[in-house]
């Protein structure tokens, strides 16, 4: 039994304690925007925010989370797809297949929250999610666009 706060809502979860947060989010809570890619924290498709920190949810058991921690998934990043990262992604048509993009967007949103003007080196260091379609250059451009839009706004 676990009690989680996901996207501002409390969920009582009845599941084995070692179930990874990813599968609780997908199969118990029913939010499928967070993706399974590897299960070993290698690809980043499962990235969510835990108290603002980008976290690979596939490799952390649900028992390691408390109700006090604020978990945010891609569905909860903004109520209407208006987070600066989402807007920049739309403007540059970043996604191809899109499967990794929930994780990419969550990683990028966390990056600009801590570094409003990320350098290329910051982006290289923090954006380690895998994209097999190869949208990396558009992701980089969109992060910079989001940063500059935020500054202007």
């Amino acid at each position: 039994m676990a009690r989680l706060t996901i996207n501002g809502k409390t969920h009582d979860i009845n599941v084995e304690a070692d179930t990874p947060l990813l599968w609780v989010i997908r199969e118990q809570v029913g939010l499928t925007g967070t993706k399974y890619g590897c299960g070993v924290a290698a690809c980043g498709a499962c990235t969510v925010h835990v108290d603002g920190v980008p976290t690979r949810s596939c490799s952390l058991p649900v028992s390691s989370f408390t109700e006090a921690q604020k978990i945010v998934t891609i569905e909860g990043l903004s109520p209407d797809v208006t987070h600066p990262i989402q807007k920049a992604w739309a403007e540059l048509d970043v996604p191809q297949c899109g499967y990794c993009q929930s994780g990419q967007i969550m990683a990028a949103a966390a990056l600009i929250a801590t570094k409003p003007n990320p350098t290329d080196a910051d982006i290289n260091a923090e954006m380690t999610n895998i994209c097999r379609c190869g949208t990396y250059n558009r992701i980089r451009a969109a992060i910079k666009l989001a940063a500059s839009n935020t500054k202007r706004g």
Binding site: L31, T32, G33, T34, T73, I74, E75, L77, S78, V81, Q86, W89, A90, D93, V94, P95, G98, Q101, S102, I105
Partner: peptide, 9 residues
């Protein structure tokens, strides 16, 4: 098909 790829939809 970009919009639903930005919010998990």
């Amino acid at each position: 098909d970009t919009a639903p790829k930005l919010n998990g939809a």
